[in-house]
Each structure stands twice: as structure tokens, then as C-alpha cells.
Design a protein around this nucleic acid. Structure first.
Lengths: 215, 215
DNA sequence: ATAACTTCGTGTAATAAATACGCAAAATAT
DNA sequence: ATATTTTGCGTATTTATTACACGAAGTTAT
């Protein structure tokens, strides 16, 4: 029997990551300005080639660490892109992942292959190389859908957070304002979070109760 | 600059398909009994290698046509599997798709590389080669989730169908019985289907109104 | 000290959505 | 004719979602 694995030409496979960050105000996506061709000096999602001895998730973690300095983050597979001409160098598939991070927890480090690394407001991305605009777009849709039935906050916020902080995050992702009382009711009814009993003080008004996600 | 595409070893990429069929009674998945190693004489999902000049969906259509005789079916990407040892021949990724078909519309044709092709009740699959049990499992979860907000019936049923037929399909996918009156109300309220004015006669009781999906 | 300001915490009424439930009508089978 | 099966529908009940306002706890300014 012929070795089936050798008789078919193989595509290259990359992992691209849509890294969402929330700074308390705005939701952002981390982009990298490429040093080299193709798409030199253009913005793209951080990504890189999959190595044969690593899983997708291991590759994503390695790539993000090397190119952005961000380690150990929560990742989820988004979609696999296989358009015939998405990369000018040849047939390159991309298994896209998305991640949620709290930018305050990490120090960005620009890797060797990049000119610059920058957080962009998720609704005002610059034009992107490859088909990365499409990937980012799909990640946005997925995130907005996910927040309806999953606790997204725990990766984006600090371990303890006020109800207003959580609400601001939801409003940012959903793009609409929510009623404070109904939001509170809904969150507590979900059973996904609990009060810590502590309060955040020192701000310019009444201290707010701190909550945490239930593991 | 080195040709980046050549310096990294490339994985093989396959497309595997979870084909759901509904015969009016039971939901089934189409499995193929392999003729050759690896997993010779074992049941697997129909699948095959991606060619460099075709998209995922083109590959899936080609593979299904060659291996099962089914053509032109509705496909949706499920997930991409990249476990290190999912294929004994080496590193092989699989971009999994799922499809919904009405078995009455197709004549199965066993391809060259298979011993047999058979519909299995989706809840009583035999043990499967590769990691295909995991793929089939994920497809089942996805299908059950999808039926809550998408009209799944139009690929699985005939163009015209009675409300009872649609309800039986939903009950089969959800694994629970539904109230006939509430189901009718919900379906009509969805705006996804309309009455054709015709009725299905010749059965052993009162003729039922025929419905169709609104395009 | 006091007043003005900001943000926090909460409850109830109104509306909308989902569920439970029963009976007469249209056909077939005997 | 009579029994049997499956259809088509409507209303009452429960549950979930939405709308909405005010006093309390701090901070800042005078």
C-alpha cells in the first residue's frame, strides 16, 4: 500500500489568534505590525506556523508568548479558514483561536518579527493583511453570541469586580445599555457569581460590593 | 528571506463528515467500513485528504460523492481536530464538517475504498476508528443546540411536510416529547414556515395540512 | 460643618413568553 | 354504523423579561 500521507501534497497550517482585551472602558483587539513580507508594515492578527509536535493550543500559546509576551491565556477555537488565496505564498490554512485577556495583567513584548504591537478598539480596526479582517469579524460575532450564555467576564476582569464593572463589559460587548437593576437580578439568578462581602472603597462615591465568579 | 512555507514541515489535512439523515422515524449517521489500514474493517466517518486546489467545502463534496454517492448537500464546518496521535500514520489534522440529508433523495453508492456503507442510529453508533467517536459526539451536541434557533428541517424533510413530521424530527433531535399545540404555535410564530394549502391524504386518519419553509 | 455631587443598592408592577391542558372534526378500518 | 386514529385549534396558568424611582453611602467643594 502506498503511503497515503506522502502522495498528497500538504498545505501549510498556521494558527491565528484574535486576542480580546478589556481595560475597563473599551474592548480591544491586539494587532501586530508585520516586519516581513507578505504584508510587511501592515497590521495582522498575531499568528504563526503550527509545528508538527504541538497541538493547536500549544502552538497558539507558544506563538502568543513569542510574539506578544502574553502567556497562559484562555483560548477557544473559532473556525478554520481555508480560502485558496488567503496567503500569497501558497496554500495556507489557518486554524483561528480567540482569547480573552486582562491587559493589566500582562506586559506586552514585541517579538523579533514585528515592528509594533498595539491594542485597537475592536470596532475601529485598521485594514488588515491576509483575510484577518474576516477572522476578527467572526470572532466579534462569536463573542457577542457567547456572552448570552457564558460568563465571559472572568478572564477579562480582575478576580474581584463590582457589578458596574461587569455591566460595563457586557454593554461594551453587546453594544447597548442595560438596566442596572435587571442586570443585577439576572447575574445573581445565573448562579455564576457571588458576593465576596468586601467593598471597593476610595473611589469618588459610595463603595461598591465586590463579586467573584464561582469556580 | 527563506521561503517560510518550505522550512516548516507540514501536516496532512483531511476532511471528515458527519452526515445526519432522517427517515421519518430515526436520526442516523452515515458510516463507512474501511477496506484499508489504518482501521481496516472498522467503522469511521466518511473522509479523505484535502487537495491543494480545492476549498474545504469542495473537498467535502468531492469526498462524499466519491465515497457515498451523495451530492450537493448542505454542509457546515464543525470543528478542527488536531490531536497529535489521532492518526497512526503521522500528524493528520481533520477539518470536520456536518451535513443534513434526506436519505430518501439519494442512492448510496459504496466507493472503491470501502467495504460497506450504512446508516446507524445516531445514539447507537458502533465503536469508531481514529477519533471519530469524538467528532460524531460534538456534531450531535451542535445539532441539538442549533435546532433551538435554526430551521434544521428543510434539509432533512421533504419540501412539503406536515407539522407532525416536523415535530417528530425535533423530538428525535432533542430527545424529549413536545406538546403538539405549543409546537404548532411556536413554529408558526417563528415565521419560518407557511401552509401550502394542500393536505397529505391516503393515510389511516384525518389528512394533515402540508407546510413548507419560507425561503 | 454643610451642601452638592456621584455612584450604589434595591422592589414592584406591567408585559411578554412559555407551558399545561381537552374536545370536536376528518378521515380509515371493521 | 361504530370504533379508531390523527388532526386542528383556544384559553387559563405560570414563568420570564422588561420598565421604572428613590433613599443610602460615600467624596468633593465651599
Amino acid at each position: 500500500m502506498p503511503d497515503e500521507l506522502s502522495i498528497y501534497p500538504r498545505p501549510s497550517v498556521t494558527i491565528d489568534c484574535v486576542v480580546f482585551g478589556y481595560d475597563g472602558e473599551q474592548l480591544s483587539i491586539l494587532l501586530l505590525n508585520r516586519r516581513d513580507e507578505p504584508f510587511a508594515n501592515q497590521w495582522t492578527l498575531p499568528g504563526g506556523f503550527l509545528h508538527l509536535e504541538e497541538t493547536f493550543e500549544e502552538a497558539a500559546q507558544r506563538i502568543l508568548k513569542d510574539k506578544t509576551g502574553i502567556e497562559n491565556l484562555f483560548l477557544e477555537q473559532l473556525y478554520t479558514f481555508g480560502g485558496l488565496s488567503r496567503d500569497p505564498r501558497g496554500r495556507v490554512l489557518s486554524v483561528a483561536y480567540y482569547a480573552l485577556v486582562n491587559p493589566a495583567k500582562y506586559q506586552l513584548m514585541v517579538g523579533q518579527m514585528a515592528n509594533e504591537l498595539r491594542w485597537f478598539n475592536w470596532k475601529q480596526l485598521p485594514s488588515l493583511g491576509f483575510d484577518h479582517a474576516q477572522i476578527a469579524q467572526l470572532a466579534q460575532v462569536r463573542l457577542a453570541a457567547k456572552i448570552h450564555y457564558q460568563p465571559i467576564g472572568f478572564e477579562l476582569l480582575n478576580a474581584q469586580f463590582t457589578m458596574s464593572e461587569l455591566q460595563a463589559l457586557h454593554e461594551c460587548i453587546l453594544g447597548e445599555t442595560l438596566d442596572r437593576r435587571n442586570f443585577h437580578k439576572r447575574m445573581m439568578a445565573s448562579g455564576l457569581l457571588r458576593s465576596t462581602g468586601e467593598r471597593r472603597e476610595g473611589l469618588k462615591s459610595r463603595p461598591a460590593e465586590l463579586f467573584e465568579f464561582i469556580p
